[in-house]
Design a protein around this nucleic acid. Structure first.
Lengths: 204, 204
DNA sequence: CGCACTAGGTGCGTATCACGCAAGTTGTGG
DNA sequence: CCACAACTTGCGTGATACGCACCTAGTGCG
């Protein structure tokens, strides 16, 4: 579904992007959060099997490359919500969609830890998670029938959901946490989602 | 309150920081979102009356300098909430605090527009707004009596509030918007705060 | 089946940039 | 008035991002 329906070119492009991003994250993990500066662009490109110049065609900074995977995943949030049954209440649909998206393969803790807990990556990490907001907002609006141009609630809810996912991730990485990521996600999301009142008077 | 209680050094330091940040934002606005690359570090330093090297002692990138003001303001969010009367319901207190913080001086639209709508600044802008999360979460926890280590809700709520502010800002900048920023903020925040209808029996 | 077209990859050159280092300058405390 | 600590600054350096021009591979058409 993701790599079908694309011509060879687009497929290769996506593959290269993932190769670079994957290599960047792997090298970053190897060096640890402190030696991030030691990960040279040249190394990333080499590990990914492309030239340094090509690397720069895909990402305009080390940080962006390292967080590329998260960004790609966030972009799928809208689609995940749309694939939920239409008669499901918004909050349940969002929770189910998010949990499916973020636990289908349980996230790589080392990678997440690197992305979320490295100060130098903070900006890009936030950017990566916030990439879910646009698509999510559209999907939410489509579901509630609200007009995104006039009603703030879809955008705000989407942003809140993205924020909740982020906080949940941070909590999941906290040493001593035993709960499943899914459990934590459910908790976090329930803090920001209107607790299923049959119909939401979002109009005004 | 903010510049008293600091010794001369700290005061000068803050002043320098603001001078640099202010100069950076001003120059960025002058060049517009497209010519951001034309704003050289040297220019910023010169406009702020410091050396390029000193500039780098305060900010490690042009982007960070430009968003410095927003970041500083975000840091005050926790304090703003704490200064609300203790018997005020959480949602009202948060709304009042945020509105006061973000409308005491009505934000400079040009500056906000530069910060929020320039792609190259996206990461730093998110970082700037997210700086409210930590202090806000603590203030919320202090108010609800929740233990931030065990309960996600303070952190999630804080993050959601920050996100709502961000979305509200974006909406306020949308051409054709006539509402006050305060009004928009109120709307956005009410989407993510547990609505406190006239009386709410339990705090959970 | 081969060709023109276009998107993507690569090498090179360059303008910046971030930061370590060490010396000079200005507050602070005794 | 002095010794200490914090802050500023100029210099030198390794690394980076990106424009430009050329080359390669995938695509669509006759």
């Amino acid at each position: 579904m993701t790599d079908d329906a694309m011509d060879l070119r687009a497929r290769n492009k996506q593959a290269t992007r993932e190769a670079i991003s994957h290599a960047a994250l792997r090298l970053a993990i190897e060096q640890g959060p402190h030696g991030l500066a030691l990960v040279r662009v040249h190394d990333i490109a080499e590990a990914a099997g492309v030239s340094s110049r090509t690397y720069n065609n895909y990402f305009s900074s080390r940080e962006e490359a390292i967080c590329g995977f998260q960004a790609d995943q966030s972009r799928r949030a809208g689609q995940a919500l749309r694939s939920r049954p239409a008669d499901e209440p918004l909050d349940q649909a969002v929770i189910a969609a998010v949990i499916e998206l973020y636990t289908d393969p349980e996230p790589d803790k080392a990678g997440l830890r690197m992305i979320m807990l490295t100060p130098a990556l903070e900006g890009e990490a936030l950017k990566a998670f916030s990439m879910a907001e646009g698509p999510l907002a559209e999907a939410i609006a489509a579901r509630t029938g609200a007009d995104p141009e006039r009603d703030l609630s879809p955008a705000v809810t989407a942003a809140a959901v993205a924020a909740a996912i982020r906080v949940a991730g941070r909590h999941w990485l906290t040493p001593g946490t035993t709960d499943t990521f899914a459990t934590i996600l459910r908790h976090a999301l329930s803090c920001v989602l209107p607790a299923t009142p049959p119909d939401d008077p979002a109009a005004r």
